[in-house]
Simulated scan of single mutants.
Amino acid sequence: MKLTHQNILAGAVNSNQYIGNDDSDTEIIPLPLHHAFGLRRLRTNLFLGATVILADGFMFPKVFFDAIEKQGATGICMVPSGFSIVKKLMKDRYIQYFNKLKYIEFGSSPMKLDEKQELAENLPDTRICMHYGLTEAAANIFIEFHEAAGKLHALGKASPNVQVAILSNEGQEKAIGEIGEIVVKGDIQTPGYWKKPELTKKSFIDGWFKTGDLGYKDDEGYVFLSGRKDDVINIGGKKVFPSEIEAALNQHPAVKDSACISISKGDELTGERIKAYLVLKGKEEPTPKELSQFLRGKLEPYKIPQDFQFIRKIPTTSSGKKQRDKLK
């Protein structure tokens, strides 16, 4: 995949414009610099002439606290799983230190709604930003937890200097509330893939870069994620998004996390059926019947999984994104 100097510069300019950091700031970067998010944060700060403090991951939160107390750090970039580690190790003690930060940027994977709400409540004076993006098109959507307190389940709105649209497979813009593919346009987007002309051609439509994610817009311009195009499950011609089922399952008091996939069976009239993999919080193991009853009223009947399996861990990428294909 190719990125030009213009792409890199645009990613830095747009992020700084949204977050509002400047050359007086000092940012803690606990992310690996071979990862797009960590590398972008390094570039954005160097572009400004700001100061960075490199930290080795999230397992030693005292490093962050010392940087804030002794070195005057004013910002930090984090992935949601990193914040979960900090909270697990330090409980509520993180609040007194993070309250001194001017900003936090989250990204790379989804964050639970209750964690977003907790952060907004505990850090009233810190600008808490979260981006949606990909290596091919940097951070192209942003949300700030206080400004969008009533819409924290959204991805956010288009980043500065970026256009975001929802298109059909034919390239027609979808109406408000209609699901289509999320596409982006701006100086941040890659010119294409190295020596892969066919993949490059498939990834663009009328100048828009196709993210491969499905979603919709509301009347205020907020973008909502429905799921990956490749993850969509077809039940009797009806599209089902695994993320919707997982969000419902994760509300069960015994469930820590979940991942849903489709399994095909030749004797099924619907062509596919849904299987849910569950990670439990403790030793309590709900029965399939109990789980199905719990989901009634939260989901349409055809979205309720027919199969449930308990596992120790959901496979994820290094940035925390679920790898549902590894469960098939």
Rank of each mutant, 00 (worst) to 15 (best):
L199C: 00
G107Y: 10
P305S: 04
F145D: 04
M78P: 08
F145M: 13
V63D: 13
P242M: 08
I179A: 00
G236E: 03
I128W: 12
V13A: 10
R43M: 15
G227V: 05
P288R: 01
K196E: 15
L54M: 12
R127I: 11
I29H: 08
L46M: 00
H146A: 13
S226P: 03
G107N: 05
G271F: 11
E246V: 04
V184M: 08
V162E: 05
K91D: 11
S226M: 06
D114G: 01
F241I: 04
A165Q: 06
A50W: 08
I182G: 00
K239Q: 06
C77I: 09
L39Y: 11
A36T: 13
V162A: 03
I104A: 09
A55K: 14
E220W: 00
I76H: 05
G221I: 04
E220D: 09
V255N: 01
T200L: 07
A276P: 06
A120Q: 05
S159D: 02
P315T: 12
R296K: 15
I205V: 14
D267T: 00
M1G: 15
G180Q: 02
I128Q: 08
I304L: 01
I205Y: 12
A73S: 05
C260W: 06
L42W: 13
A67F: 11
N169M: 04
T135L: 09
K256W: 00
L327N: 05
R127F: 08
C260D: 06
K174A: 05
V279I: 12
L327R: 02
G75M: 12
I233M: 10
P286A: 07
Q309W: 01
P286R: 11
I8H: 12
D66P: 00
K298M: 11
D92S: 07
Q293E: 13
F241Y: 14
V162Y: 02
A247I: 10
A254L: 06
L3Y: 07
L167S: 05
S84E: 15
V13R: 10
F204S: 04
P286L: 11
N14K: 06
P32T: 11
I85C: 03
I188D: 02
T317E: 00
Y132S: 15
V223I: 14
V86A: 10
K174D: 01
E144C: 08
Q117I: 14
S318P: 12
E284Q: 08
H252P: 05
K201F: 01
A276V: 02
K328M: 14
I95S: 02
T270M: 09
Q251V: 04
H252L: 02
I53K: 01
N7M: 13
I28C: 07
K210P: 03
S318D: 15
H5Q: 14
E144H: 06
A175E: 11
I104C: 07
Q323P: 03
T51Q: 07
Q172G: 03
N140C: 15
F37K: 02
H153I: 11
R40T: 14
N16I: 04
A73Y: 04
D218N: 14
M59N: 13
C129W: 14
I274L: 11
E118W: 09
F310L: 00
K210S: 02
L249C: 10
M59A: 14
G212N: 00
K328R: 13
E136C: 01
A50C: 03
E144Q: 13
M1A: 15
N45Q: 14
L280E: 08
L225G: 00
T135C: 10
